[in-house]
Amino acid sequence: MITARYAREIPQRYRLEASRCAQCATVSFPPRLVCPTCKGRTFSTITLQNEGKLLSYTVVRVGSDKFSKETPFAVGIIELKDGIRITTQIADANLEKLAHGQTVRLVFRKIQEDGKAGILCYGYKAIVV
């Protein structure tokens, strides 16, 4: 059962909540307790912009058991407008036409299921715009 573990990440997965260091303004996603830049420990919560660019990607053709029925699917590293980088699936993608630098937007999709009877797990995926 992954319920508590899933619920903990909801602000990040559903709403892209990040932390901005009060001292040096470095943004961390997910939020951290120590700023990786200046070691500051005070933060404010911000919401990341849901648009960005595709930096690099792959098409997963052999997935773990949990994702094996969804292959092939694209996963990329996206740099959001705020400069934050995330790893995410690229949904509804034409796998032949993906390219570095493409503009993408994040949408809300189902990411995985905790087995047949467990909870459904949602979050962001990118789509090429």
Partner: peptide, 16 residues
């Protein structure tokens, strides 16, 4: 629906 779409994701997209 895509394999990652359901009534909830469709509702979210429409509501957005």
């Amino acid at each position: 629906p895509g394999q990652d779409e359901d009534t909830i994701t469709i509702s979210v997209a429409a509501a957005q």
